[in-house]
């Protein structure tokens, strides 16, 4: 049935080594590092209603003049719940976070912020997910770093925490006003 002698006995091992290299590559990059086609480009044009200030329209002017985090969240997303306390901490340190409420129900979102605290300077509502599509959102939570010029600098998929903040976000924020932030964080 099988060849008398031969290399076939090594085939499973070779197959596994290939698989392990593939997995290791996935591990190194991690799905959190989904590259964004928009890196270095301006934030897509935003015209969205505000969740908490009735009648207000949120647009790109909100992002000008300071480093801003754009956090894509929703009440239906368990990981958003996990990262929420950390976002509150960041907000306390003076980081401006805009929370894009993604494919969510307004009432539930209001309740969520009322119960757990609101880390956001503003909450634009993207009920249909159309803005998320422009932004290339893969799934909540995602966090984008927007420069004072209104350009997207970084995209992070998944939970925000101290490790990610220190390793990925802080090194990119080189404006003098942000060095103060860095000192406070340490």
């Amino acid at each position: 049935m099988l060849p008398r002698k031969g290399v076939w006995v090594f085939l499973p091992l070779i197959g596994f080594i290939a698989l392990a290299i593939l997995l290791a590559s996935g591990l190194g990059k991690n799905t959190e590092d989904l590259p964004t086609a928009l890196a270095g480009k301006p934030l897509p044009q935003m015209q969205l209603p505000s969740l908490l200030r009735k009648g207000n329209v949120v647009d790109n002017r909100l992002f000008e003049g300071r480093w801003t985090l754009l956090n894509v969240w929703a009440t239906w997303c368990p990981t958003c719940h996990i990262e929420h306390p950390y976002l509150l901490k960041l907000a306390q340190r003076g980081v401006a976070i805009v929370g894009l409420d993604y494919k969510d129900e307004d009432a539930a979102a209001k309740n969520y912020l009322a119960n757990l605290g609101n880390p956001y300077v503003e909450v634009p509502v993207d009920a249909s997910g159309a803005y998320g599509l422009n932004l290339g959102v893969y799934g909540a939570p995602e966090t984008y770093l927007v420069s004072p010029q209104g350009d997207i600098v970084l995209r992070h998929v998944g939970e925000m925490n101290e490790r990610v903040w220190q390793a990925k976000f802080l090194p990119l924020m080189k404006e003098p006003s942000d060095i103060k932030l860095q000192v406070e964080a340490q």
Binding site: A20, L27, N30, T31, Y138, V157, G158, E159
Partner: peptide, 20 residues
């Protein structure tokens, strides 16, 4: 955390490296 899924646990690359 190599693949995203509804079932994934909150994950951490340290653990991934260990299991690999």
């Amino acid at each position: 955390g190599v693949l995203t899924s509804v079932h994934s646990f909150a994950n951490d690359p340290e653990r991934g490296r260990f299991i690999l």
